[in-house]
Design a protein around this nucleic acid. Structure first.
Length: 423
DNA sequence: TCTGGGGTCCTAGGACCC
DNA sequence: TCTGGGGTCCTAGGACCC
């Protein structure tokens, strides 16, 4: 059966989430900032029109912010994750197979469905909007890459009312000619430069490139992108995402610190978060990598250190992993530096079921301890990440994030529920 | 002067995505 | 003053082996 794939993409997702809970933001220029209020990670259409690029440090945009009264928000991932869950569960009802691609995007299989795809997609869109307040755009095509292209066209053409089906479209070449090569999914900054130097400026030009040449310059992935644009699906549809091969937890601090104890607190906190994700996917890891660094943007006093610590047996025990992280820290820590960031990465991940205890039945953790961890996970899943945590993660958090423009946790904390006032 | 060929494994680095 | 966090995949090159 020929695949037909729809890509549903939430418009300006983080900004839209903020707008759901404060409709006064509608029509106003809004920016959502990264952790520590550092960079622009989401922009309303009004801000995009002003030419503010994604990823720009906000202090470099101060003039525009002042001039156009742009409203700034710290990122509120708890809220966005919860809104994402609501959107995804609605999308899921409209297809036998869905691939959650990111927090704000999902591929839906429409293969073999006898429907008017455009009408059907409009209905999906309206239901999501009505139930969650989030606006969604849907692009449809015979491959993921063409669904992405169709989505882009739908976003920039308001007369399409949020849905575009490029499958077997008679003017497909005209549309591909309107897509800049750097806007193709899978073609980033580097390849975009390289292709343009070789006279390939649009998606249409790219479809006419030589297969061997493309593979040589852009690896097998580039060739897959090329074929997908020609309508030949190469990137598989992944109904159930494979377990993660590495789990990272790292964050910049709100302040600089030289103190090893602050780094220990931070690492304990990040390790707990990573171990939680590890247990959630029912896996164990054999290696924890630890890294710490100063700001990399200054001229002097820079330092970055990282090291791997191997566990005696695979584990997902927060306590064991935290002790290993501390060992790693002892080896990479240098006094006299102003640290800005730390992190851990869990690797060599295997499923819990694959673990063979050795001849003596060695495990690092008693059954009691594992039960305690699962109980903590359940609490944290239900009531928020910091409900139950190890004392080692600290309670002062001098190094914690700066989030000066944070909105309330409208949907996930009772005390932050929005209040409806009678007039 | 001459100094094989092929396989595997590992790592670092580079590209991409949101 | 202020510069995110979390992932994936591919390739080249070196080490090592027979």
């Amino acid at each position: 059966m020929r695949p037909i794939i729809a890509l549903a993409d939430c418009n300006n997702f983080y900004v839209s989430c903020e707008r759901v809970f404060d409709p006064r933001l509608e029509g106003k220029p809004v920016i959502v900032l990264s952790n520590n209020d550092g960079c622009v990670v989401a922009r309303s259409n009004e801000v995009k029109a002003l030419g503010v690029p994604l990823g720009k440090p906000i202090f470099e945009c101060q003039d525009l912010v002042d001039k156009h009264h742009i409203l700034l928000f710290s990122s509120n991932y708890t809220l966005y994750a919860d809104m994402s869950q609501r959107v995804m569960s609605i999308l899921d009802e409209y297809t036998p197979e869905m691939e959650r691609y990111s927090i704000d995007e999902a591929f839906l299989s429409l293969s073999g469905m006898s429907i008017d795809r455009t009408e059907y997609s409009r209905e999906i869109r309206e239901t999501v909007k009505r139930s969650t307040g989030i606006p969604v755009t849907i692009g449809i095509g015979p491959s993921k890459t063409l669904a992405k292209v169709a989505n882009k066209i739908a976003k920039r053409t308001s007369s399409l009312r949020g849905v575009f089906d490029i499958t077997d479209h008679p003017k497909i070449e005209d549309y591909l000619a309107q897509i800049e090569v750097g806007d193709i999914w899978g073609v980033g900054y580097r390849y975009s430069e390289m292709l343009q130097e070789n006279g390939i400026k649009t998606a249409l030009d790219f479809t006419r490139a030589d297969d061997i040449w493309v593979q040589k310059r852009m690896t097998i992935r580039g060739l897959m992108t090329l074929k997908e644009l020609r309508g030949e699906p190469c990137i598989p549809f992944e109904d159930a995402p494979p377990p993660k091969k590495g789990i990272i937890s790292s964050k910049g601090f709100g302040i600089e610190t030289e103190r090893k104890d602050d780094l220990k607190e931070a690492l304990a906190d990040y390790t707990a978060q990573a171990a939680f994700k590890l247990r959630r996917q029912k896996s164990l890891c054999s290696v924890i990598q630890v890294f710490i660094q100063t700001s990399m943007f200054k001229a002097q006093g820079k330092y970055a250190g990282g090291i791997s610590v191997r566990l005696p047996v695979p584990t997902s025990d927060t306590g064991v992993l935290t002790q290993a992280a501390y060992q790693g820290l002892e080896r990479v820590y240098r006094s006299g530096y102003a640290y800005r960031k730390a992190g851990v990465m869990l690797t060599e991940i295997i499923p819990e079921s694959a673990f063979q205890p050795d001849l003596f039945g060695t495990t690092l953790s008693s059954e009691k301890k594992i039960n305690l961890l699962h109980a903590m996970d359940a609490l944290n899943t239900r009531f928020g990440r910091k409900t139950a945590q190890m004392v080692a993660a600290g309670t002062l958090k001098l190094w914690g994030m700066r989030r000066s423009k944070l909105t309330p946790r409208y949907t996930t904390a009772w005390e932050d529920l929005p209040v409806a006032k009678a007039c």
